[in-house]
């Protein structure tokens, strides 16, 4: 693009007063970016080339958003582990209770067996007592 020296001078005056529009500044930038600018404007060329290089500086800042995402899931993790722990505790107490009930049932069955055994033997003993009954009646017949 070719710009007349008068036009550039006018733009630079406006530029100094802070009155240029962005379009006019773009004209100035492209004028000074071409090597054919008038050497009278050398200080301005330095300024504009500074702006140009400056606008290309990159940050090289790596955004560590990955660390923020797991933060969202951190609460989920904590909640999940609490649920797992509570579940384990509940399961353990439940198991213990079941063990107790089981042991009680076994003790009950053993006692029941023992009592059954006792009463069976008792009944057997009673059968033998019938002989005494017979003996008694016979004895009473003789000894009146």
């Amino acid at each position: 693009m070719d710009f007349s020296k008068a036009y550039i001078t006018k733009l630079l005056d406006l530029f100094d007063d802070g009155e240029t529009t962005l379009e006019q500044e773009r004209d100035l930038k492209s004028y000074f970016a071409s090597e054919s600018y008038d050497k009278d404007f050398e200080p301005y060329a330095v300024l504009f080339s500074y702006f140009e290089t400056e606008s290309k500086t990159t940050s090289q800042v790596e955004v560590d958003l990955q660390s923020s995402k797991p933060n969202k899931f951190l609460w989920l993790n904590v909640a999940a582990s609490i649920v797992v722990i509570l579940g384990a505790v509940w399961l353990f107490t439940y198991y213990e209770k079941q063990q107790d009930i089981q042991a009680a049932r076994i003790a009950f069955e053993k006692t029941q067996n023992a009592l059954n055994f006792l009463s069976y033997n008792m009944n057997e003993g009673l059968e033998k007592l019938e002989y005494i009954e017979v003996f008694n009646t016979q004895k009473n017949k003789i000894i009146k």
Binding site: F15, D16, D17, G18, E19, P43, Y44
Partner: peptide
Amino acid sequence: VRVALSRARKKIMNELKKTS
């Protein structure tokens, strides 16, 4: 904004013209 911009530009240009 315009005044601050103009002041800043003029100051920089003054220094640049001096050094050149």
